[in-house]
Design a protein around this nucleic acid. Structure first.
Lengths: 247, 247
DNA sequence: CGCACTCTTGACCGAGATCAACATTCGTGG
DNA sequence: CCACGAATGTTGATCTCGGTCAAGAGTGCG
């Protein structure tokens, strides 16, 4: 089914960065999109694939991951609504990563040929898509810095701060009793795979974060009890997310 | 001084990926480039900068790095001749990283406005530049996987395999007595910063690699004594470098 | 209602960090 | 061309953060 999701999240994402002209907005909206629901814990694309389409996430969480020869898994990115996890396949035909759903997801597939045509007709849209992949790269760098240099406590705190910032940027952050809350149903094993830590140590780090009054986390709802203090404690600086709001 | 380096490394890099038309080739060559020599161990750009130009490396090594609040340094990338380490600043105005020279470097600065004009006139060039930033991202992911999941020995072996592959791709790999040799004058401290390991442990890992007949390394000349075995031992698969040769 | 997944806790272990000293190399100026 | 000081590399001793193993407690879905 080719459709436009209530108000296209793709459009919303692009407009969060730059003001679009009517023509550009219309060009984005006329991009054929095939909407699809995908259950949790399922690969969307796999290492070695040569996809002829990319997708945007309308709803749900996905992760980009690699598997080592020793059978260990590194989650390299977690994507949320509004993100396009495999835009790279537009220019890198063979995937060097797999992408899986962490939750039930609604995604919109767009054919590469259609995206390419859009990019040719509206070069500014191309620039914005390019920009998105550059932000992804900036996040990879930050995660690499965490994995290489920060201790377990900071790593867990850091990714939590990142998620709050990104959820807020796409309007997915709620307030409950004045406290920011996000729906982040990720397991401790997955978090360990993302941070290069064992799930046991994740568990202990989370306990520390809870005991020290930084967060509350229950059945997928993560509450920030003192995010400013957490940001300081986990060396979080949002510059790398490049969330600069449009004028 | 505006000049074209013997045969433009930028052009060589682009043509290693796609066949260019005469017009495209000419457009690339007519891009004004300001050549500059920069001594070793010097920042080219710094976190927070808002550069109005990007640069290509003609000769030498640079590194992309971030510093944590605790004063630790993560080297997120090492770039060699033909690479454009800060192309991202074309679309992300504020730098979230610093870039420094590891050796004496010759680089060519290109104004963003000129690159943008080139991209508009020759969209395929834009795609190739975009592609380059995507390969950078793929390398970040692989390094993240190393930092998160591989042990010290594999990490060191892996980056060595990567360097041999990348040097070869741009024609910087020499053969001595039939053995591949690259000029890689990096210190053990720097290697530690890149891999998230202490220099002491780098030293011991290198000794293991030498003793087991994988490599020889003396005064910046790195010799691969048995790269196939090293690739196997350090879980190296070059897919992520996306070196697919042009037809 | 039962099984599988996830979380939690405790005990123990080990890869790699840190600290400290010494050796070697290299760049620089005399 | 040599001497010297700083940077880099090497080695040993010790420590610690986080891994691994294992068992039990929740939790949720079919």
């Amino acid at each position: 089914m080719t459709t436009t999701y209530s108000q296209s999240p793709l459009l919303r994402k692009l407009e969060s960065v730059a003001r679009l002209t009517d023509e550009e907005r219309e060009a984005v909206c006329s991009l054929p999109v095939q909407e699809q629901n995908i259950p949790a814990h399922q690969d969307i694309v796999r290492e070695g694939d040569r996809p002829n389409k990319s997708f945007y996430i309308y709803d749900g969480l996905t992760c980009v991951y690699k598997t080592t020869g020793a059978g260990r898994r590194q989650i390299a990115a977690i994507h949320i609504a509004g993100d396009a996890p495999d835009l790279q396949s537009l220019h890198l035909p063979v995937l060097d990563i797999s992408i899986a759903t962490l939750t039930n997801c609604t995604v919109g597939f767009m054919k590469h040929e259609d995206i390419r045509a859009l990019c040719r007709r509206r070069p500014r849209i191309a620039d914005l898509l390019w920009r998105e992949t550059l932000v992804d790269a900036a996040v990879y760098r930050e995660w690499l810095t965490s994995a290489g240099q920060r201790d377990a406590f900071s790593r867990v705190g850091h990714i939590i701060c990142e998620m709050f910032a990104r959820y807020e940027a796409v309007g997915l952050l709620r307030k409950v009793d004045g406290k920011p809350v996000i729906h982040w149903p990720i397991t401790q094993v997955q978090l360990g795979d993302a941070l290069g830590l064992s799930s046991v140590h994740i568990n202990r780090s989370l306990q520390a974060l809870r005991e020290q009054g930084f967060i509350a986390w229950k059945s997928g709802m993560l509450t920030g009890l003192d995010l400013p203090r957490l940001k300081a404690a986990s060396d979080f600086d949002p510059t790398y997310l490049h969330l600069s709001p449009p004028v």
